[in-house]
Design a protein around this nucleic acid. Structure first.
Length: 214
DNA sequence: TGCCAGGCCGGGT
DNA sequence: ACCCGGCATGGC
């Protein structure tokens, strides 16, 4: 038996069970969350999102119209609040001007072009773009993050200094191109990275990968 | 207490 | 093409 990527996935899934990501209901909320969670724990993002929710601002136009300073204040718990207020505005402008704030419209066109467009927005990089595409749009783009690199480089399945595209390619070339799989696999990686293969636990001893036979 | 968290940008080499 | 400093709160 080989440690194929799919078997690694199953070992995570067996360990944690289904995670049903993204932790957010509407596509719009997911996209906002994807920006807010940049280098920030999800706990803090939840506070920011519930502030927006409470003020009935989880709608494109309403969120775009609010004063940037007030927005920064509302999202304060998620950290980098000045930066992220600006980034949210940048995205909302694009979203309103091109799709009238309709995620259905946004995801109905060519996904590769959409990814390029998203990357043109100041404040949206590869991980955020792929998170939006995968979790808000159900498009098959594998999300790579710090956890992914940490876990897989520890097992010598990628290198620490590999680029985003290199790691992403490793996954897409070794997995069936299925949205449900990409979705669940990344969620499993985050769960593992948060709770088991942490920075403080470099041995990663109970990582399920260790229990797969060579 | 200090370190870390589901990045990204801009400026410098 | 990399490399680095800056951005900032809350949890453990």
């Amino acid at each position: 038996m080989q440690k194929t990527l799919l078997k690694i996935y199953y070992s995570f899934y067996d360990y944690f069970g289904p995670l049903n990501w993204w932790p957010g209901s509407t596509p719009f909320e997911i996209m906002i969350g994807a920006i807010l969670t940049q280098n920030t724990s999800w706990k803090n993002v939840e506070k920011a999102i519930s502030n927006l929710q409470r003020n009935k601002l989880l709608q494109p136009l309403e969120l775009y119209m609010i004063d940037e300073k007030k927005l920064a204040c509302l999202i304060k718990p998620s950290g980098y609040f000045n930066l992220k207020a600006k980034r949210l505005k940048n995205f909302l402008k694009y979203f309103l001007e091109n799709y009238q704030g309709s995620s259905k419209k946004m995801f109905s066109g060519n996904s590769a072009k959409l990814r390029n467009d998203l990357l043109m927005i100041n404040g949206i990089g590869q991980e955020t773009a792929d998170s939006i595409l995968l979790y808000a749009g159900n498009k098959p783009f594998f999300v790579v993050d710090a956890y992914t690199k940490r876990i897989f480089s520890r097992h010598h399945l990628c290198a620490k200094n590999d680029s985003y595209s290199q790691v992403q390619e490793y996954f897409t070339k070794n997995l069936p191109r299925k949205v449900e799989l990409y979705n669940e696999f990344h969620a499993q990686i985050v769960m593992l990275g948060k709770n088991i293969c942490t920075k403080k636990n470099p041995k990663c001893s109970i990582c399920p990968i260790n229990y797969l036979e060579k």
